[in-house]
Every structure is written in C-alpha cells, then in structure tokens.
Design a protein around this nucleic acid. Sequence first.
RNA 1: AGAGGAGUGGCAGAGUGGUCGAAUGCGGCGGUCUUGAAAACCGUUGUACCGCAAGGUACCGGGGGUUCGAAUCCCUCCUCCUCUGCCA
Length: 423
Amino acid sequence: MLLVNTIRDQFDQVLTGLEKRNFPDAHAILTQVLALDDRRKASQTQRDQLQAESNSISKEIGQLMREGKKEQAEHLKGKTVELKQQVKELEDQNSSAEEELKALLYTIPNIPHSTVRAGKSAEDNEVVLEHGTIPDLAGNKAPHWELIKTYDIIDFDLGVKIAGAGFPVYKGKGARLQRALINFFLDEAMAAGFVEVQPPIVVNEDSGYGTGQLPDKEGQMYHATADNLFLIPTAEVPITNIYRDVIVSEEDLPIKNVGYTPCFRREAGSWGAHVRGLNRLHQFDKVEIVQITHPDHSYQALEEMSSYVQSLLQKLELPYRVLRLCGGDMGFTSALTYDMEVYSAAQERWLEVSSVSNFETYQSNRLKLRFKDGDKKTQLAHTLNGSALALPRIVAAILENNQTEGGILMPKVLQPYLGFEKI
RNA sequence: AGAGGAGUGGCAGAGUGGUCGAAUGCGGCGGUCUUGAAAACCGUUGUACCGCAAGGUACCGGGGGUUCGAAUCCCUCCUCCUCUGCCA
C-alpha cells in the first residue's frame, strides 16, 4: 500500500498517477486518507497525554503503598478510574481511525512509473520490441489442443475425471517436457545469480495480505477452510513473504531468489475460445524470480530481469514481443510492468508467458520489509518479481511452432534435459 | 492426535504484581592504549507511533481479560521441545 506521507507530500503527483490508471474518485479518496490520518494523530496525541498522566499517578500510588499511606493511595485510585475510561474511548477512536485508514489504503493501487502511459485496456499497451521470426507452418497448422491428443502427451479428460476442468494430466513425453522446462529454467536462473528456494505452496492469511492477494483477490485463490490456508496463485506470495517483517542489511541487497512451484488459480467465470487447451488452467507450473533491491537500483534490476526473461525465450527459439503495460492494464500493486508474449503459430496469437514488475515500496510497506542504510536509518526496500517462466503457454507455443509432418521438434537447449529430440 | 514443558532485546539468559524497555554475558559499533592487531579498559548498541522540540506512548510469541499498576496473574490461539501414538 501507499505511504500516507507520500500522499501528503506529493498529493498532485499521486493524483496524476491514479488518473493514469483510471482510478475513480481519486481526489476524494486521497482527501479522505489525509483526514483519517489527521484523526488518527489527534486521538493518539490525546490518548498518549492521558496515558502519561495515568502512568504517573500509578507510580505515585505504588510509592504511597510502600510508605504505608493507604488512604492517600485509595484517594488517587479514584482519579485514575476516570482517566482510564477516557483513555479507553480515545484508544477506540484511534484504532478505528487506523483501521479505516488501512482499509482505505488497501483499495488504492500503486502509482505508475513516469514512463507508463495512460490507457484503459490491453489495446493501449506499448510494444517495446519484437524478436524472432514467426514460423510459416503452411498447410499443417494444428493447434496444441489437437497436437496433445495426436501424440497423447497431455490429457484433459483424465484431469476432469480426477479433479475437474483445467487440471490436465501430463503423460510420457509431455510429463518429461514439463520436468525439462522446470530444470532448464532453474539452472538458468542459478547461473544468473538467483538463489533457489522451495517454499510452501499454501500460505496463511498474513502472507496473503503481505503481497496484496488479500483482501483484494480472495475469490481467485483456492481456500482450504479447515486450516484457513490458501493455495498459492504464484510463488511470488511465499517467496516474497520470506522477507515479511525483516530488516536486512544494505550489503545483502540485492536479494535474488528463484523458485519453482505449482500455481493454483480459480479464475472464476472466464471460459471460451481464448482459453482453450493450455491457454488458461486452474493448476500450472511456473518458475518465478524475485528480487529485493535498494530503491536506487530497482529500475536497473527490472531491466536486467526483463533481459533475463528474454534470454530464456531466445534460447527456446520462440518468437516474442515485449510490452510495456499501460496504466489501465497494469496489476494493482505494480509501478511498472513488462509483459513478454510468445507467438503461438497455429492459434495465430500472442500468448502472455511472463510479467515482470517493479512494485517499488508498495509491497514492502505492507510487508514491513526494510533495510538499514548508511546513516543507520531504516527504509523500505523495493520488491520486484517476474515469471521465468510459466510453463503451459510455453509448451503450447513449442508444440505449435515446431510441428512438422515427422513430429514436433524440441528446442536444442532442452534436449539434454529431455533425452529425446522430437515428440 | 494424547500427556507434560517452554516461548524475554542480534544471540545466550535473569527477572512471578510497582523502583523493568527490562540485569548479566556474548556479539556489533565508537574510543583509549598499540607501529598494526589482539587483550584490557571506557562508552554505545531494538522497533513503531505522536510531538517543531523537550519529551511522551506502545511493544517481553499473537489476541483478549483482571488490576490504580502486568514480562510477571487469568482466558484463548499460535509456535517449539520431551514422551506416547500414527506415518512418507
């Protein structure tokens, strides 16, 4: 969430930023934030004062008791009863102001970076670059949902039987391809300096709030109600929460982690032609990279992460493009996001396979993720993350783009992991 | 899952109702001494909020309660340890 001080000190910039995202009623909401904060401060000042008075009387009582002056002590007790009542009232006022403030701040998205342009939807995103050539498949252009049947490598019907729609079963070379991609992505990330972690794939409420899935997107996560745990929608959640309530030292920055996890998304109510096959699933595999950086270096880190993700796509020999998302299409918590899309030659469309974002202090403020700077002051770190990469659409593109009459050719970099050259 | 025990500052560890934001040791930082280092000695060393400041308030696993006053008493939840059970 945004810092109240930022809203106070840079009111106009914040307002302009929110307008870029088409955030409604920005002015009124920001004004309300400041009013709530004033209310919070006023009640705290008063409460602290009365509490101090009460504390000193209590000390006095203790002193009198020790001296055996019981009557005087009793007399003072009467005084504190009244104070106590007032303190309680102010306390309630204070915490209700604080809660309202927090609830309101949760509804305000991050401020877009200056390079982010205004826009309403995906149509307004900027194409930053395109790379690779789109294959000409001529006559035989089977979409991946046909190819997986032809070669019997991914079975949706079996998944329906076992769990439901959107939970495919990977079989034989299909399963092997999954494992190869995961290992390839992890090895590449380690070579690029990311430290691998294997986090839990369920998280508690605190973690959900820490990275912003709660209270916002509660319905998007599978919820194990008996234990009040949520299946993770992305490894971002458990990995970033490693650093919740942590003060790291400046020398430890940047912190770079990578993790492979399955991801679970309920994605209620969006079915149709665009989401056939592997395009959208309830369970999928993803390797995620996370960085925690010094505020001065986060945009440099973002560019590096973008290049890193592109290097993976290049090695997989997939044609891709990079988008800089417009204000309206960017995630709630992000300040700047690049989307990487690969071209899926049979579907003849671009598929998003990665989203690389800088959250600046938006997440770290909630997480209380800080570092001590040179002057021994604690300040919020910046958090970033990106998919590197999400598997299903990569698989879809590999299958579609590399299909030949004699089978589907596997990218060279994967062959050592696969142990075969084609499906 | 059952029985018992325990959670205190970066770490170890005292503290069972007032003088405790908290002894002591270790570690960290600064200094004295030294050519330099070690040792020794001296000082310093949590976080957040309110306040222009002086200063104040809160925090001893989380939440709630008793009391004029809670690290200390009560309730509840969480976590860890020991034993028993179950189990990859």
